[in-house]
Structure formats: structure tokens, C-alpha cells
Design a protein around this nucleic acid. Structure first.
Lengths: 197, 197
DNA sequence: AATATAAGTTAGTTTGTTATCACTAACAAG
DNA sequence: CTTGTTAGTGATAACAAACTAACTTATATT
């Protein structure tokens, strides 16, 4: 189709296609043949760009990680005040999942993490980073009186990440028949109202 | 090891071993050879008891489904009052996950998500049944004044199931370094306190 | 225009997976 | 003690997986 490409472009394309197919057929049963066919190159061509399949997964994980962290930073930069910042973070996460629906299964998928320790580390650090951003924003919210101080910031962060993961699970199991971002933000508002006092 | 067994016993054993290995190596990486080896029978023997691997997965799902529903019923039977009933339900679910840790990953397995529609149905109905029990208890709680009425019972149920799923995810990703039931119930108390006000 | 480099291909090898088939052996009942 | 039933086996078909080797061709540089 697209003819011969530079290694950099091809690598990026392969990573993107992996994420797309991972959503369609599941991260674990995704074969290099599937990826190659979707792109329109031969299967061994994959191995010209990534030494092993594990290396390919690691590249996917790092790509996801970078994109998410950019999204979070952008969300926080655009919002001012604790509550808007918190909401922007949650929305960024919901949007990211909606745009890359393979994410929950990837984040969760034990098979990848059982086989690929490095991958597990990348995602673990990623979740931790999100939690930290939340905690920071929550602490600010408590300082300004936006959020009641009877609950620890860590617990509030746990409740909020759970909210995102929970709605994402219902979204995937329910054949994605509702708007993830919409429903997620609605529940966020409900939860925040409770936290307000 | 155990010699020749009745079909019924062997089936139950296979189902149990599938759940155990699914936890160790992931539901989608699990092969019939793995199962057979863990039991100590030949690989083709699996197919004497289940016509296909899909049928085996379905049996696993139904076994899980029955056990969970029994657990929920028992939990509700032993508790009186809306709040204790709610807490008992959450605890039953947390205990079930702790006892069958493959459960969360099963929700995201490709077997369930893509391959096996029947499986998906079983789990979808199962989650719905849990949600219904929660909603019922929440409604009672609101009637008796235990839970504030500014939030819809459906939303509260969503927040609570999310809580369970969220803490389960952190538990599995974090190498199960804390007590799932303990931490889950702690967060439940936090959330209920917010709902009480 | 010649040439080096790197992207890509065709044709394998090896290993693992589900499933089938013909057969064996344990067990219960007559 | 025979006999029908059924759990279990060994061999293997059929196929899909990751990866390799040897060859080909596009592209940039000199």
C-alpha cells in the first residue's frame, strides 16, 4: 500500500496498529502475522524493526505511557483551581481510554505482565503517576475548602481512580453502548458533590 | 496420582484447576496441556469431559456464577438492616475475588471479550445481578435514612461496584501486597460515611 | 552512474496448540 | 467371571506461533 518507509515511521505505525488490533482481538492473542497483515507488509518485516515480540510490546507500553503523561500535563495546564484540575485529569483519562480502548485490557492483562516484567513496571509507574497527580490536586482542594478534610487525599484518589476503572469496565462489558466520557464525568460530579461536604 | 475418577469429580477438578492456572499464567495463555499436566492426566483426557475448550470455559463461568450467587445470598441472609446488608454484599464480593484471584483478569480475557459470546453473557448477567442486589439494599437504606437521598440508588451502586473493581485492580497489579478484603472494606466505610451525612 | 545501506520478501525451522482416533484398563452388574 | 460402560492413553493430524536465513530492491550519497 504505502510502499517503503523509514524505520522510524514504520515503527510508529506498527505500534499504532498493535494498539488497534489489541482492542479488536485482545492483547494476548495478537500475533505478529495479524499486525503485518493489517499494515500490508510481510510478517518477518516486523522483526526487522523489533528484535522480539516482547520488545514490540515494550515499545507499545512506552508510547502509551508518554502519550498519557502528555495528556495529563496538558489537562492540568489548561485548568486552574483544584476542582477544575481534578475534573480535567479524570476527563483526560476517560478520553484516553475512549480513544485507545485496548488500554484497560492492556493495563490489566496479566498475561503480558506475567511474561514481560518490564511492561509491568511501565504500567505500574504510570498508574502511580496518575494517582500522585490526583492526590496533589485533592490536597489543594482541601486547602481551599473545595473538598472536605475528613477523608485522606489518598483515599479520595483511590475512589476516583476506581470510578474511572469501574465505568471503563462497564463500558467494555456493555459493548460500549454509552459514552464513556459522559457517564464517567457524570459520576465524577456525583462523587465530588458527596466530597464537598 | 489420584487414579481413575468419576466424570463428575474430574470435571469439577478440571474447572478448579483452570481457575487456578488462569490466575498464574493468565486466562488466554492457558492451554489444555497446562491443565492436564497440573492434574496429572493426559492432555486428550480433557476432551473426554469437555467437547471443546470453549465448552470448558463456559463450565468454568457457570461454576463461578453459581458460587458467587450463593455467596451473595448467604451474605444477605446473615445480615439484617440496609447498611449491614450492603457491607456484607461488598465483603462477599471482595472475599470471592481474594479466593478466586483469576476473576478480575477473566473479565478482560480475550476468551470472554471476543471469542466466547456465551461466556460474555454469563458474566454480564452476573454483574447485573450484583448491581441489582446493591440497588435494592441502597433503596432500603435511603428509606430508613441510613443513606442520603440526594444520589440515585443506581449511581451509588455504580460507585460501590467501581470501588470493588478498583481496589481489586490495585491488588492484582500491586502483586497482592495488601489484604484485599481489609482495604476494600476500609474504603467502603469511607464511601458510606460520605453517603451518610 | 556506482555503491552502500537499510527496508522488505520468500521460504523455511521449531515449537506449541486444539482436537481426533484407535486402543487399554478399571469398575459395576448380572 | 464375563461383559458393557467409560475414564484414560499414546500417537498424530492440522494448524498457528515466533523467529531465522538468504535473497531482493528502494533510496540516499558520493
Amino acid at each position: 500500500m504505502s510502499g517503503r518507509q523509514t524505520a522510524e515511521d514504520r515503527k510508529a505505525q506498527i505500534v499504532a496498529v498493535v494498539l488497534q488490533i489489541a482492542d479488536e482481538i485482545g492483547p494476548d492473542r495478537l500475533s505478529t502475522t495479524d499486525v503485518a497483515r493489517a499494515i500490508g507488509i510481510s510478517q518477518p518485516a516486523i522483526f526487522r524493526h523489533f528484535p522480539t515480540k516482547s520488545a514490540l510490546w515494550l515499545a507499545v507500553a512506552e508510547s502509551v505511557s508518554e502519550r498519557l503523561q502528555r495528556d495529563w500535563a496538558a489537562a492540568e495546564a489548561e485548568a486552574s483551581g483544584a476542582h477544575p484540575r481534578l475534573k480535567a485529569l479524570i476527563m483526560a483519562q476517560l478520553s484516553a481510554i475512549a480513544k485507545t480502548p485496548a488500554l484497560p485490557s492492556l493495563l490489566f492483562s496479566r498475561e503480558l505482565q506475567v511474561e514481560n516484567m518490564a511492561l509491568r513496571d511501565v504500567f505500574h509507574r504510570l498508574l502511580g503517576a496518575f494517582q500522585s497527580r490526583l492526590i496533589e490536586a485533592i490536597r489543594d482542594g482541601q486547602a481551599t475548602g473545595d473538598i472536605c478534610e475528613t477523608v485522606s487525599p489518598e483515599d479520595v484518589a483511590s475512589l476516583l481512580t476506581s470510578l474511572v476503572q469501574g465505568v471503563a469496565i462497564r463500558w467494555t462489558l456493555g459493548a460500549r453502548s454509552f459514552s464513556l466520557v459522559h457517564e464517567g464525568l457524570r459520576l465524577f460530579d456525583v462523587q465530588i458533590a458527596l466530597l464537598r461536604r
